[in-house]
């Protein structure tokens, strides 16, 4: 923990290094002392936790994507992590690093947001559990304060719930940094006529990965039908998304894609 005190002051935590080494090479970060966290024992496990999951922060994303336990309990997460980087990147990139790096386009974030995951942060002052939605504070910024992200807790989800993840990349390859990503987890009532719980998360359309609260509200308790889907998709695009233009896509295209992809995800989840 004494090392944690020095974080930022020339010391960085090294997980898979797939973000850190690129940053060091292009000069954004220089001459730092690195502390490799991959061998800290309890950071490397995937554990069932009630009907949910506990993911060690240093587990690599490809291991999670291929884990039978994850596939069975949270296919949405498995689906999202399967397209996080190439095979080589996925073999190194850790889930904790993906979150701590806090790219608005981080591919693990929308799925974990939709699954209402929390992260455990451990520092010299002790430990705290932070809902993922409150973890990001800006592009590349989080609430981490000289702390180590140790675990990601994914709570159990209703049995009838199903999820979908869409990653729209400029090329369609897994290693593309996305233009827009959308994860939706939705729970219908027993009759499959009404949305009882819908969580929509968006990537690369705001300073951080976000939940589309306006869109979700418009669906809650509503009939599962084309009109509600359309309204929600429109709200997600117009009220929730706050995209910018960059080399991968313009703000207006991103907005349009949020609408399309949210609608598609909801339609897919409406199919009985």
């Amino acid at each position: 923990m004494s090392l944690m005190e020095k974080l930022d002051g020339g010391v960085s935590l090294l997980a898979g290094g797939t973000d850190l080494l690129v940053a060091m090479k292009d000069g954004r970060l220089r001459h730092r002392t690195l502390v490799d966290i991959k061998h800290i024992s309890n950071l490397g496990a995937i554990r069932p936790e009630d009907a949910g999951l506990c993911l060690g922060a240093a587990v690599n994303t490809r291991t999670i994507a291929r884990s039978p336990l994850v596939k069975e309990r949270f296919p949405l997460l498995s689906q999202a992590l399967a397209v996080l980087g190439s095979m080589q990147i996925g073999n190194r990139a850790t889930i904790g690093g993906n979150l701590a790096n806090a790219s608005p386009a981080a591919d693990s974030a929308p799925a974990l947001l939709a699954l209402e995951a929390s992260v455990k942060l451990v520092g010299p002052q002790g430990e705290r559990l932070v809902p993922l939605e409150n973890f990001f504070s800006g592009p590349g910024k989080t609430v981490l304060e000289r702390e180590l992200l140790t675990e990601i807790h994914v709570p159990s989800a209703p049995d009838q719930g199903r999820g979908v993840f869409y990653k729209l990349g400029p090329r369609g390859a897994p290693e593309d940094i996305c233009i827009v990503s959308v994860a939706v987890f939705a729970v219908p009532d027993a009759s499959k006529r009404i949305w009882t719980d819908v969580r929509i998360a968006l990537g690369a359309v705001a300073p951080t990965p976000i939940r589309a609260r306006n869109a979700e509200k418009a669906l809650l308790g509503q009939l599962i039908e084309g009109r509600t889907v359309e309204d929600a998709a429109r709200l997600a695009a117009e009220k929730d998304a706050r995209p910018i233009s960059d080399i991968r896509g313009s703000a207006s295209y991103r907005r349009a894609m949020v609408k399309i992809l949210v609608a598609r995800a909801l339609e897919q989840l409406s199919e009985r």
């Binding site: 090294l14 898979g16 290094g17 797939t18 080494l21 690129v22 690195l34 490799d36 991959k38 095979m87 080589q88 990147i89 073999n91 190194r92």
Partner: peptide, 18 residues
């Protein structure tokens, strides 16, 4: 690409010490 402990990785993104 090289194989480290059975997994393919980009050796440009792995430190030798690791």
């Amino acid at each position: 690409t090289v194989i480290v402990d059975g997994k393919a990785v980009n050796s440009c993104l792995v430190l030798a010490v690791e």
